[in-house]
Design a protein around this nucleic acid. Structure first.
Lengths: 256, 256
DNA sequence: CGTTCGATTGAGGAAGATCAATTAATGTGG
DNA sequence: CCACATTAATTGATCTTCCTCAATCGAACG
């Protein structure tokens, strides 16, 4: 978009940087588990099993609950007043859902499960009451909201400043790192979105998504499993990071 | 981008819809004033005058304060790990700043004043303490965070689903409505951003911003004042809304 | 009054959208 | 389990939007 697309093999990363990143994710995974434990203890939330395609809440619906994802995967679909609709966020284990409803007293988007999962349901009032007794819980709540703000802005930056291939690469990186932070396998990703949905999320057409994935595969940054192109194997997440960087800082022209 | 650009004069809006929208903004303006009063009473924040160009906090700086804007105008500039930087949000009277710092314990962006203004400075801990005593304050805080999440997503949608001209129109509409909600004059806007900054915020080049503004002016959706092209006169905000809609729902082909 | 920075406008080119055809996966009823 | 229908994905050809490069103009400022 703004920057020239650079189609090049990615630069490698040092082993030190690699293990630092891995350690960071490991502690993050522990934190997520701790937070879930705290929520469970303090709020005794109602558990709800959702299946792929089920809607947790819908845009316009009266706000009242907050949700925490214990397992599974959600997409949030925003609708504008003029009828556009778009995937604006993805939610993984440990993420909260429903914050968007607090401001106006009604949810601003649809929360749709992309997989079977378990959601913890809590009345917002009950959360507030528990927070009043347990400051740690309030801190956790605010951290979650703050993280959501930060993530939304990162999405905006990706869409605004990266060319299509890098945007897809950054999307895969984000997905892989989200799994890594939760202690899940990161080399094999099952994309539970169609090309059209990915494109909708990233601000491009499904054809461009398909072409970008093909190009990334041709450059060995990803590979498809033998059965189906829904599963993506990422041999090295850092290579994706480097690829995005190389697209931003185009062609250093043998500078050192 | 995703949708075909439609260059047409905008459809008018009913007087009823117009006044409903105006009333909505008036009550919003009162709410903002009330919220500011509540904050002032409960927190007795330290006041700080900022001048255009001054930085309230910077990315990476240790988090500790939250801020509320009593007057003036701020931009938030996000920086990615690979060096890209982008305007990701604008802040008006009554808006909070600093939420992005809660999650990681350090701010994630630069907050830069675009105008002389007054900022209220509060320790995050002090805010939490006050919230513990006054549930209304906690509600206000959460509403502000929720609104920020919602706004960020609207930005994302605009960038992902609108062609350049509509994106600029939507930007002007957002700015005008932000002023309207605060009881300020909405027909005359002083853009305190260069074309380059606007383009950076909207994900397009400064030339495209310039051309889009020229086209909007040619269609009488905006006009420039005699002195300078920094001031934009918007004769009818609703016409901008209609223009964006017409770009989304392309050419109904004389349907009715 | 020249210098500088920002804005405008034009010409050409490139990334990505659109249209279209083909192939692969998924599902359905017999 | 297969034939068929349906939906998703890929790939190619063409067209549009917007980016890039460049020149000009205007405003602000020392």
């Amino acid at each position: 978009m703004l920057n020239p697309a650079v189609s090049q093999a990615a630069a490698p990363m040092t082993a030190a940087a690699r293990s630092a990143r891995a350690a960071e994710f490991q502690t993050a995974g522990q934190e997520i588990a701790e937070v879930l434990r705290l929520i469970q203890e303090q709020l005794q939330p109602q558990r709800r099993i959702v299946r792929a395609g089920e809607t947790l809440y819908q845009a316009g619906e009266r706000f009242g609950n907050l949700y925490v994802l214990n397992s599974g995967l959600f997409k949030l679909i925003n609708l504008s007043s003029d009828g556009r609709e778009q995937v604006v966020a993805l939610k993984f284990r440990g993420d909260w859902l429903g914050f968007d409803g607090i401001a106006a007293g009604q949810y601003a988007c649809d929360a749709v499960a992309m997989d079977t999962g378990e959601v913890w349901v809590m009345r917002y009032d009950a959360v507030l009451a528990a927070c009043a007794l347990r400051p740690a819980l309030l801190r956790v709540l605010h951290e979650a909201m703050s993280r959501e703000i930060g993530r939304d802005r990162d999405s905006l930056m990706s869409v605004c400043s990266l060319p299509a291939d890098a945007r897809v690469a950054d999307f895969l990186r984000y997905w892989a790192e989200s799994l890594a932070k939760r202690g899940l396998r990161t080399d094999q990703i099952t994309l539970r979105m169609t090309r059209a949905e990915i494109g909708n999320y990233l601000g491009m057409t499904l054809e461009t998504v398909s072409r970008s994935l093909s190009r990334l595969a041709r450059q060995q940054l990803i590979c498809f499993t033998e059965k189906g192109r829904r599963d993506v194997h990422i041999p090295d997440v850092m290579a994706l990071v480097s690829f995005v960087q190389s697209a931003v800082a185009p062609a250093p022209a043998t500078l050192q």
